[in-house]
Design a protein around this nucleic acid. Structure first.
Lengths: 224, 224
DNA sequence: CGACATGTTGAGATGGATCAACACTTGTGG
DNA sequence: CCACAAGTGTTGATCCATCTCAACATGTCG
């Protein structure tokens, strides 16, 4: 989707960063001075309350941008944790302004990426607030499968899926146990299959109907 | 907070729009060709499922920007409804790119506004997903009161409050009845008072502790 | 005056939470 | 090679935060 933007942004990179699965890319409460784009791998962006309750805000896949929302205050209010080994394109926060000044079209693209991420969070908020557990899980599986497929991460409709039931629970504001039971229902309905190979959705349209969610047709450079 | 940006953005305006309380600024499913900044008044940004369940994504106050997330696809996936009479600064979508090209710093500010709105939605998602009803309502009241105060809408700690319990329910993914009972508890705890004058928070620090939410110190032009 | 929006309260129902096991796999150190 | 811990998935039993249904009160407005 954003190949073009990615390529340009990389000219500003000051280095690549590699992290392992489970590593924190940005720790909650840290003061990161870097921005990243994801080149490879999956991550979660999350917040936690002081007693440990955690909410996953969204999943980060290749092409996603991170570090901007995190920099609105001195201390990052969110954490970012790798779900798989990752390759990140890194550049300093101080490089952002020159980028806008000299390549306004890239600034434009950054805005687009941020707005796009927000629209995903909007959708999740609708799920968590108003959808039932079954509907929410249906939408999340469909959403992630679709994104991965659009990034060419699918082989024959099957995408590697590093997301555990715990992650799904934390993304949808549900308990682990209830996610487990809900996913059993979806599985028995034949709406998804998951094994070592990855995630498969035999009937995506039924999932979409169930979740009342029909993704947005992707547009490159949609503004202007 | 954003007076400076507002002033510049207004140079691009193609007109002012006035709407009454209850009017739709942007209808769900419409294809708006305009962007707005709020000059005066309150609004909600929301999504609805096809059976009518509604989720408010965030509240729009003076200085907020709208129309960008809405324009990521051909059809606006969200609606915007005025809670009070509003005055909006309007300019055409086609004016956005020239703005970036000729005044990169304004592009920068637009990015900041979008990222800031996302951080608010992030906080709400944490509430809806992981906070209890009492905590969620506490945070919402505190958040709105703080924003209004920062915009100088408070007189003597009291802000006009056009938000009904139905809105709070739809913002927090709760039922109207439960919001009513929850607010009664908060009222009896002396944590808020609401009358024709407006909303008053006698003990904001207790609310913050209850909600485990300590807003971000506002920064103007925080990037660079 | 009635219609409508908003707030309030009670009673009962339920989706989802919590607590508690247990199975399976993987990695690790002795 | 085995014992063990840690992560993940699964299932049953029970509880409760919140929902739904149903009234009713109040204020506003045409």
């Amino acid at each position: 989707v954003v190949d073009d933007e990615l390529e340009h942004l990389q000219k500003f990179k000051s280095g690549e960063r590699h992290v392992d699965a489970g590593d924190m890319v940005i720790a909650e409460g840290a003061t990161p001075g870097r921005l990243y784009t994801v080149l490879e791998g999956w991550a979660i962006r999350f917040k936690t309350l002081s007693d440990g309750r955690r909410q996953i805000l969204n999943f980060l896949l290749p092409g996603d941008f991170l570090g901007l929302q995190e920099r609105l205050s001195d201390v990052s209010p969110v954490g970012v944790e790798a779900l798989t080994p990752m390759r990140l394109c890194s550049f300093p926060l101080s490089g952002l302004w020159p980028l806008y000044a000299r390549f306004p079209s890239l600034g434009f693209d950054v805005t687009w990426l941020v707005a796009h991420e927000e629209s995903i969070v909007d959708d999740t908020l609708l799920s968590v607030g108003r959808r039932t557990a079954l509907e929410s899980v249906a939408m999340l599986l469909l959403h992630l499968h679709k994104r991965a497929t659009q990034l060419d991460l699918a082989t024959d409709g099957c995408v590697a899926f590093p997301v555990t039931q715990t992650h799904i629970a934390d993304a949808l504001g549900l308990s682990l146990v209830h996610v487990n039971r809900t996913m059993r229902r979806l599985r028995q309905l034949g709406l998804y299959a998951l094994d070592a190979e990855g995630l498969r959705l035999p009937n995506p349209r039924a999932l979409a109907r169930l979740a009342d969610w029909y993704g947005t047709p992707p547009r490159v450079r949609p503004l202007i």
